[in-house]
Design a protein around this nucleic acid. Structure first.
Length: 576
RNA sequence: CGGGGCGUAGCGUAGCCUGGUAGCGCGUCUGAAUGGGGUUCAGAAGGUCGUGCGUUCGAAUCGCACCGCCCCGACCA
C-alpha cells in the first residue's frame, strides 16, 4: 500500500474526549474515529489490525475444531422470552420495531439463536460434539460506554458455543477452547492471564476469564506472583485476613453502650470507643427476592457481592434502602446488628462470612440508633443461617493452596470461557437421544473474545511515548518503507519501489511512505502508528551503499542495498 | 439514574467571573526558502460561539430548559 493512496489521518494532539492512552493512540494514529459515544468508525489501518486479530482467532478456532457460522444480529424477541433473558438481560437489549410495529432485538450475544438451531438440528448423540463460532457485531445498551473501544455499544466479538452429550464431554470442549485462547492471545502478542471467574447472570458452573493486566482495566484480579492461582476479585479466595479474628470470649453477656453519632466502622475505631475494625461486625442488609437478609463481615472487610449472589442463589437482590432497613431492624445504618436478642423477627436469615467463625468479644450495632453491643460471641449470640466466604480478598493474603501471597492487579477482560451446562438447552428444548433412545438436554459451553477490545488491549499494553508498538502479528502493516526523497527521478525512489515490490512479492504487509513530507514528519508518523519495522532510504545511506533498518523496538542497523530484502525478511522473523 | 466537569473553525484551546471588535497554536490552501527528526517565512480560506427561550439598547459572556460529550459512582452477559 502507498501512504498517499490510503487514508491515515494522524493527529499531533489527541481529542479531548479520550482519556486513556490506548484510546488516544487509536485516534492519533488514525485507526478509528468516533461517530458518537460508544460507536466508532474503523479507518483503513484500524480495519487491518482488527482483521488480523480476527484472522488469528479464526485460525485457532478452526484448529480447535470449531465450525464457523454467521448468525443474525437482528433477532425475534420470542427466543429471548423462552430463555428468560428478555427480562433478566432487558437493560442491555436494544429493541427496534418494524413497519408493522413488531418488536425485534439486536443481539447482545447469541445463546438463544444457536440453541434454537441446535434444538431443531441436533437430535442424536451421534451429532456431537459440535462447536459453532462466529465473528460478528454485538449490540449492547451499555449504561456507560467508556474508553473508546473498551466498552462500546457496538463491538466485534467472537462467540463460540459447544454442544456435548455429557458433563465430561463438555469439559473436554471447554478445555479445547481454553487452550485455543491461550494460543490466540499469545499470537496477538498479548500477555493475557487466565483467571477463575464468576459466572454472572448468564449462569453456569465454571468459567475462566482471560485478563490483560493494565492500570486502566475495569476488572481487578488476584494472582500468585509465581503463577498458579489467579482469580477475578469477584471470586478470589484466600486463607483469610492477615489479622486474626479475635476468638476469646470475654465471658460477659452482650452489653449495650451508648455511641451517639457513631455511624461508621472508622468512627467506632476512633476515640473515645477505640474498637479496632477487626473486632467489629459489619452488618449489611440486602433484599433477596424482596426478602430481607442480614449479611455479616468483619469490620475491616468488604462484602463481595458476587459471592453473596452465589450464596443467595438469585440475581434478584440488592442492598436495602435506609427506610427498608429501618422497617426490618428498627434502626438505621450505623447501628445495625444481628444479635438474636435484638432482632424483631427471629427467622431473619443471617449470612456470615467464614472469617467470623468462632469470633468472640466483638462489637456490633444494637439495632437501636445510637447504641452498640460489646462482648458479642458469634456462636453464642448470633443465629447464623449460613456460613460462607463472602469477603473480598485483600492484597498480601495467602493463597489457599500454596500459601503464597496474593497480589491484586487491574486488568482488561479480553476473553471468557463458560461451562454453561443445560440452562439454555433445557429452556429451549435442545435435546438429543442417547444410545438407549432416551432424551437429554445438550450440555453447552460458550466462549467469547472481544475482538475490538483485544485490538485496544494490545495498544494499551504495547506503547511508548512516541506511539504504538505493534506486535508483528497484528500490526496494520509490518514494514514501512520510508524514502526521504520521493522524487521519481531521484536516486532514492526507484530503490524504494524495488524493495516495495520485492517485499510484496515475498508476502510481507508493506506500506510505502511516498508522501513528499520532510523526514521528521515521516519518522514521527511511522513511530506513532507503530509499524514493527521501518526501512529508511536516504541519499546519505545510499551513498554508503546501505539502507537503514529500524525496528520500532530496537536500534537502527545499516545493511547493504543488495542484501536489503533478505535482511529485512530475516529481521522480521526475529521481531516479536 | 445520582454526583462532577465540559460544549467557541477539522483538532487543541483563550475569551465568560466584570455583556459591546471572536483570538491563539496545530492542521488545511497558495507562494518562497529549506531538505535526515513534527523546519521557516509571507499570505489566505475556514465560526449558526451545542440548540431553544428569556433578560438587555446590545449575549460566546447573564438566567432557564433541552441536547451532546467526558469523568466518578450505581449497573453490567
Amino acid at each position: 500500500m502507498r501512504w498517499t493512496h490510503t487514508f491515515i489521518p494522524t493527529l499531533k494532539e489527541s481529542p479531548a474526549d479520550a482519556e486513556i492512552l490506548s484510546h488516544k493512540l487509536l485516534l492519533r494514529a488514525g485507526l478509528i474515529r468516533k461517530l458518537t459515544a460508544g460507536l466508532y468508525t474503523f479507518l483503513p489501518l484500524g480495519v487491518r489490525a482488527l482483521h488480523k486479530v480476527a484472522q488469528i482467532v479464526r485460525e485457532e478456532m478452526d484448529r480447535a475444531g470449531a465450525l464457523e457460522v454467521l448468525m443474525p444480529a437482528l433477532q425475534p424477541p420470542d427466543i429471548w422470552q423462552q430463555s428468560g433473558r428478555y427480562q433478566s438481560a432487558a437493560d442491555v437489549l436494544y429493541k427496534v420495531r418494524d413497519r408493522a410495529n413488531k418488536e425485534w432485538v439486536l443481539g447482545p450475544t447469541h445463546e438463544e439463536v444457536i440453541t434454537q438451531l441446535a434444538a431443531t438440528e441436533i437430535s442424536s448423540y451421534r451429532q456431537m460434539p459440535k462447536n459453532f463460532y462466529q465473528i460478528q457485531v454485538k449490540f449492547r445498551d451499555e449504561i456507560r460506554p467508556r474508553f473508546g473501544l473498551m466498552r462500546a455499544k457496538e463491538f466485534m466479538m467472537k462467540d463460540a458455543y459447544s454442544f456435548d452429550v455429557s458433563d465430561d464431554a463438555a469439559q473436554l470442549s471447554y478445555q479445547k477452547m481454553y487452550d485455543a485462547y491461550v494460543r490466540i492471545f499469545q499470537r496477538c502478542g498479548l500477555k493475557a492471564v487466565p483467571v477463575e471467574a464468576d459466572t454472572g447472570v448468564i449462569g453456569g458452573k465454571f468459567s475462566h476469564e482471560f485478563m490483560v493486566p493494565a492500570e486502566t482495566g475495569e476488572n481487578e484480579i488476584a494472582c500468585v506472583a509465581s503463577g498458579g492461582y489467579a482469580a477475578n476479585l469477584e471470586k478470589a479466595t484466600s486463607r483469610g485476613p492477615l489479622t486474626p479474628t479475635p476468638g476469646v470470649s470475654t465471658g460477659h453477656a452482650p452489653e449495650k453502650f451508648p455511641t451517639p453519632g457513631v455511624l461508621t466502622i472508622a468512627a467506632l475505631a476512633a476515640p473515645p470507643h477505640l474498637v479496632p475494625p477487626h473486632r467489629q461486625l459489619k452488618t449489611l442488609v440486602y433484599l433477596a427476592d424482596s426478602r430481607p437478609v442480614l449479611v455479616l463481615v468483619r469490620g475491616d472487610d468488604q462484602l463481595n457481592e458476587p459471592k453473596l449472589a452465589a450464596q443467595l442463589g438469585t440475581d434478584q437482590f440488592r442492598a436495602a434502602e435506609p427506610d427498608e432497613i429501618a422497617a426490618a431492624l428498627g434502626a438505621h445504618p450505623g447501628s445495625l446488628g444481628a444479635v438474636a436478642a435484638t432482632l424483631k423477627s427471629p427467622d431473619l436469615a443471617v449470612y456470615a462470612d467464614a472469617a467470623l467463625r468462632g469470633a468472640a468479644g466483638m462489637v456490633t450495632g444494637a439495632n437501636e440508633d445510637g447504641f452498640h453491643l460489646r462482648h458479642v460471641d458469634l456462636g453464642r449470640d448470633i443465629r447464623v443461617t449460613r456460613w460462607a466466604d463472602l469477603r473480598t480478598v485483600r492484597s498480601g493474603e495467602l493463597d489457599v493452596a500454596t500459601g503464597q501471597p496474593l497480589t491484586l492487579h487491574r486488568a482488561i477482560e479480553v476473553g471468557h470461557v463458560f461451562k454453561l451446562g443445560t440452562k439454555y438447552s433445557e429452556a429451549m428444548n435442545a435435546t438429543f437421544l442417547d444410545e438407549q433412545g432416551r432424551a437429554h438436554p445438550c450440555v453447552m459451553g460458550c466462549y467469547g473474545i472481544g475482538v475490538t477490545r483485544t485490538v485496544q488491549a494490545v495498544i494499551e499494553q504495547s506503547n511508548d511515548r512516541d506511539g504504538i508498538l505493534w506486535p508483528k502479528a497484528v500490526a496494520p502493516y509490518t514494514v514501512c518503507i520510508t524514502p526521504l526523497n520521493v522524487d521519481p527521478d531521484g536516486p532514492v525512489m526507484p530503490l524504494a519501489e524495488t524493495l516495495y515490490a520485492q517485499l510484496q512479492a515475498a508476502g510481507v504487509d508493506v506500506i510505502l511512505d511516498d508522501r513528499p513530507e520532510r523526514p521528521g514528519v515521516k519518522f514521527k508518523d511511522s513511530e506513532l502508528v507503530g509499524f514493527p519495522l521501518r526501512v529508511g532510504l536516504g541519499e546519505k545511506s545510499l551513498a554508503r551503499g546501505e539502507v537503514e533498518l529500524k525496528p520500532r523496538r530496537g536500534s537502527l542497523v545499516g545493511v547493504r542495498i543488495e542484501e536489503a530484502t533478505a535482511r529485512i525478511l530475516s529481521l522480521l522473523d526475529s521481531l516479536p
